[in-house]
Design a protein around this nucleic acid. Structure first.
Lengths: 90, 90
DNA sequence: AAACTATTTAGACTTTTTTCTAAATAGGCC
DNA sequence: GGCCTATTTAGAAAAAAGTCTAAATAGTTT
């Protein structure tokens, strides 16, 4: 079940872009929303899915909520891909 | 664009199961359909998506169409996950 | 070439996902 | 406490994905 959630989470380009942004530093919800041509509520929805998938964590500071990447969740996905032989570059 | 297709393809549990079956050997469309409680036309639809994503290839023999796994397509996905730090098990 | 088998395609319907607007929370600040 | 800022939640609407039935295609066999 966990992997299904992870894969669904990263199947969307906006959520992938969010993860890419979080690769280098934390962003608040508002900072993230500013990167897209979408309503903040929509970004909030994507953040919820990423959070549920365990790919990001949130942390409050004043009344900002900062998000951080948690890439360790990918382990299961990597195992699955490897089990399929996903690393042979023959 | 390619990666988006790959990730969407593997975001569905039925398509993942198809890939898992193809891990060990080729299956015809009918053999695959027999593994699921779905119409053959539905499996055909999933096969089309997997094929479009380059994850499987087809090969005709008599009037069967056999499918084969092509796991090399995962390379791009693996790179992306690694770029996010998806392999640190600290 | 007619009949048969395996599979796909077309189109309608259903379900799930994404997006929006408006309202609700939550905490900080004067 | 009342107001302000940041963010989320609710609910409706739109868009995308998955499934079904029926018909079409493609190749085989006699």
């Amino acid at each position: 079940m966990a992997m299904n959630q992870t894969l669904k989470a990263i199947a969307d380009p906006i959520r992938r872009r969010i993860l890419e942004l979080l690769r280098t530093r934390s962003y608040s919800a508002g900072e993230l929303a500013a990167q897209f041509d979408l309503q903040q509520a929509t970004i909030s929805y994507h953040l919820k899915l990423l959070k549920q998938a365990g790919l990001i964590s949130e942390r409050r500071d004043k009344n900002f909520i900062y998000y951080d990447l948690n890439a360790s969740v990918f382990e299961e996905v990597l195992s699955w891909i490897y089990s399929l032989g996903g690393d042979n570059h023959e």
